[in-house]
Design a protein around this nucleic acid. Structure first.
Length: 861
DNA sequence: GCAAGGTC
């Protein structure tokens, strides 16, 4: 029997589609990566009985990057990234092992049906899948078609079944347009980012961002925030005047009337109108009207609307809201949360999900009434052909979900119920008055039936006292006419919700990536989130945007994306050649880049005003090995040491504190050593600022400390303080932390493993001798006489931390505090001794011992 | 260390 491989874009879709096509009779198993499942069933395909294997990828299989050597920032001129630097496709998520997985499942299959999402990205993924799978599939008989594309616009039985009988072919042009986008984004984004970062980090000490990034989505996103900031800054308040009249309605009630002229900006004119009206005793009713109006029930919920409401009403940032929604989805509480569609498919079962909510403690009454009286037909929304709108999938309580997840679920559910509720109906009454020659109006709203506002109370029409009944010609006594002086007020900073709307409107990002771009500009410290989730640009953000405006406004305008996308669409439609469009667009941006580099002084002038030069930043800390003057320690991200005399900057490891290390010097370059530590429960090690930036030995990596240095005799080096191979990671060595006493620590120089040992010992040294069993270096330990754990009155003991029975009791394995609990190994019990790294006595392990002697040997080779 | 796009 022949086999048909079918591939969807995500595991959830593979399951839904397989369930539809197999009519529920499939057998499922997990794939080798543990994430994707394979659903199998038999059926007919091109008139023959076949075995179907339905599975999925997880989004893109491949990602684009430069060849390795072009990722070295200090060796490559960013200008080279536009053309010379070659790119390669790498596996997008190596942990998922997607290529291998596809090949295992695809091996021996005869046909392939591609069920990827029906957008350009999906079309591109089709070819990523084919690249992986075609080489291992059975060879086609001559002329037989083996590759098929299923095109569907919703995940409904009819759509999926129709797609299956009308299979087409994947569209190469659409896929190519995505290849072009990837390459443009990569080359342009990286070139500008590297140039800006290096240029400004090399000049200023307090930028407070370790990366000055640029991108065709993130930069316009920042642009919106700064545009609002500029409007606020340049706002000049204007004074205006308003007439306000009050008439007596009943004996104890008065009505406030609005002036039909709304406001005037000339005081004398306002005064004139006041003079014409203030002596009038009566207000005459000129007209009355009563209109029934409706406030529309909401459209079905899509992603961006959910993110807007989450930000503005629930106070949840888009990134966080999306994570919460994803969790609700994987736990089965809501439907797929990434969709642009606001229209329920015709076959969508609205009553099913509604019935599930019929006993919910919060909205049972509303739901029961809807079910009894009949639901309202939802409004016609937009069908993007991706996924149905976001709806609840099962009932849940606050106690069950807790906190944030509950609040988002509650909103999604209330929104869903609202979409099948009736519109809110209210009566709008208007009375038009004349006082002297001036006209005034009074309007009031009274609710006829609340409709959906019952379940979305925050949308309800505010309760007002109804207007008095009257008719044309009636008169009311004027109680007061007065003139109010007011001022126009500036707009406030952009809210996240407004920003999302702007991004959506200009096509910046997609429903899935909008939260990422907003998060980016926060993380880069271009904007900060203020109260009410308003985004206030920082000095850095403002200077960048103003700089772009000065040099080349197109770099920050929202049109930068749409202009490129227009070109890409030509590729997709087969109207333009992929190579030509790519080459042309790269050429345009290469020119822009060179112009930007040549004009950078224009942006620098703005930087100077807000930021201090390196030489004027930081506090003197340690001495330079070249000039022996003090270098300044710059704490702001990225932390570094700067020697203003030599005009050199040495970067330091991030996310920790730096102190002077006893004024000790590196024997190689005479730089004073500093001590890096990662907080009280973490690790610490000395490092030489020069060696860390210019590793002296072949096997020492950039950015590392003395605990990775293979200097044969320096007392701080790995050679002198290293004990043995790490118990958990492959390449690390456990190194004694010489500063850690009296709570002595031995820490891995690569991973987060830390062993706490010999509390209260007053001296610990690494001996030149090694353990006969495991080849680790022995430790020489002196204990305090009063608190010695040694038998008898002994204060001195030499032994192996892993094998010595006395020491084993005194060693406890832990992970540095910064390590996430998820990645922690098994508990402390395993920590005694060498854990899984331990090898049986007398049998040398397969792994080369990385002890002192072997490290030395490696160095002398 | 960089972009934006999928998805987990």
């Amino acid at each position: 029997m022949k086999t048909v491989l079918m591939v969807a874009e995500k595991p959830s879709l593979a399951q839904s589609i397989a369930r539809i096509l197999s009519r529920g009779s499939m057998s499922s198993r997990k794939g080798l990566n543990g994430t994707c499942s394979v659903h199998e069933y038999t059926g007919t395909f091109t008139g023959q009985l076949v075995r179907f294997k339905m599975t999925s990828v997880c989004g893109h299989v491949m990602t684009l990057d430069f060849l390795g050597k072009y990722n070295k920032w200090d060796k490559v001129d960013p200008a080279e990234l536009f053309s010379q630097a070659p790119t390669e496709k790498k596996e997008a998520n190596p942990k998922l092992n997607m290529v291998k997985f596809l090949q295992v499942e695809g091996k021996g299959c005869d046909y392939i049906v591609l069920w990827l999402d029906c957008d350009k990205e999906g079309e591109n993924i089709c070819f990523e899948v084919l690249d992986a799978v075609l080489p291992v599939m059975n060879q086609a008989h001559s002329g037989e078609k083996t590759v098929f594309r299923a095109r569907f616009s919703s995940i409904t039985d009819t759509d999926i079944c129709t797609a299956m009988v009308r299979l087409g072919e994947p569209d190469h042009n659409e896929a190519l347009s995505v290849d072009a986008r990837q390459e443009l984004d990569l080359r342009i984004g990286c070139a500008f980012t590297r140039f800006q970062t290096k240029y400004f980090q090399g000049k200023y000490g307090n930028l407070d961002s370790s990366l000055i990034s640029f991108g065709p989505c993130q930069t316009p996103t920042l642009g919106f925030c700064v545009e609002r900031h500029d409007k606020i800054q340049s706002f000049k308040p204007e004074t205006y005047w308003v007439l306000q009249a009050k008439v007596d309605a009943d004996k104890d009630r008065s009505l406030l009337l609005d002036w039909d002229r709304v406001r005037v900006f000339d005081r004398e004119i306002a005064q004139m109108f006041l003079n014409m009206t203030k002596l009038e005793k009566e207000a005459q009713v000129e007209a009355t009207s009563r209109k029934e109006k409706a406030k529309q029930r909401p459209l079905a919920l899509n992603t961006v609307e959910m993110l807007r409401v989450a930000s503005s009403s629930l106070g949840m940032g888009p990134q966080h809201a999306m994570q919460t929604a994803e969790r609700l989805y994987t736990q089965g509480y809501i439907s797929y949360p990434r969709t642009e569609t606001t229209h329920y498919p015709e076959s969508f079962d609205l009553k099913g999900p509604l019935r599930q909510q019929a006993n919910h403690p919060y909205w049972a009454d509303t739901v029961k009434r809807l079910l009894a009286e009949g639901i309202n037909r939802p409004r016609k929304g937009h069908d993007a052909g991706d996924h149905p709108p976001i709806t609840p999938m099962k009932s849940a309580t606050e106690a069950e979900l807790g906190g944030e997840a509950w609040r988002l679920y509650e909103y999604i559910t209330r929104h869903f119920i609202a979409t099948v509720s009736h519109d809110c109906k209210y009566l709008q009454s208007t009375i038009s008055f004349r006082i002297g020659p001036e006209r005034f109006t009074c309007t009031g709203k009274t609710v006829i039936s609340p409709g959906f506002t019952e379940i979305m109370p925050w949308q309800s029409v505010p309760l007002e006292e109804s207007l008095p009944t009257c008719q044309r010609g009636d008169t009311f006594a004027v109680a007061e006419v007065k003139m109010l002086e007011k001022q126009t007020s500036p707009p406030d900073y952009l809210t996240e919700a407004e920003l999302i709307t702007l991004m959506e409107k200009h096509g910046i990002g997609t429903d899935a990536s909008i939260p990422v771009h907003i998060n980016n500009i926060c993380q880069r410290n271009y904007v900060v989130v203020e109260s009410g989730r308003r985004l206030k640009p920082t000095n850095l953000g403002i200077v960048l945007v103003h700089g772009y405006y000065k040099i080349d406004a197109e770099l920050v305008l929202p049109t930068i994306r749409s202009a490129v996308e227009k070109q890409l669409n030509l590729i997709a439609q087969g109207k333009a050649d992929y190579r030509q469009v790519l080459g042309h667009t790269l050429d345009v941006f290469k020119r822009k880049f060179h112009y930007f580099v040549d004009s950078i002084a224009g942006m620098d002038e703005l930087m100077e005003v807000s930021f201090s030069p390196l030489a004027a930043t930081g506090k003197p800390l340690s001495r330079c090995g070249k000039c022996h003057r003090f270098m300044k320690y710059i704490q702001a991200k990225p932390s570094r040491l700067h020697c203003s005399h030599c005009d050199e900057t040495y970067t330091l490891p991030q996310n920790g504190t730096i102190k002077l290390y006893k004024e000790l010097r590196c024997p190689l370059d005479d730089f004073e050593l500093v001590l890096w530590s990662s907080g009280s429960r973490g690790k610490s090690y000395p490092l030489c600022p020069y060696c860390s930036n210019h590793p002296p030995f072949r096997d020492m990596k950039k950015g590392t400390g003395c605990n990775e240095c293979t200097h044969p005799t320096c007392q701080h080096s790995l050679s002198m303080l290293g004990i043995g191979q790490c118990v958990e990671c492959e390449s690390g060595v456990l190194v004694l932390d010489p500063t850690s006493g009296p709570k002595w620590r031995v820490a891995c120089n690569r991973c987060s493993v830390v062993a706490h040992c010999f509390e209260n010992a007053h001296r610990v040294r690494v001996s030149a001798d090694t353990c006969g069993t495991c080849e680790a270096a022995l430790l020489d330990v002196d204990f305090n006489k009063a608190r010695s754990p040694l038998p008898g009155d002994g204060t001195q003991h030499t032994g192996c931390v892993f094998c010595d029975p006395v020491f084993q009791e005194l060693v406890e394995l832990k992970h540095a505090a910064s390590c996430h609990p998820m990645h922690r190994g098994p508990g402390r019990r395993q920590g005694r001794g060498r854990g899984r790294g331990r090898k049986p006595a007398g049998k040398p392990g397969t792994r080369r011992p990385k002890d002192k002697m072997s490290a030395l040997a490696a160095y002398f080779v």
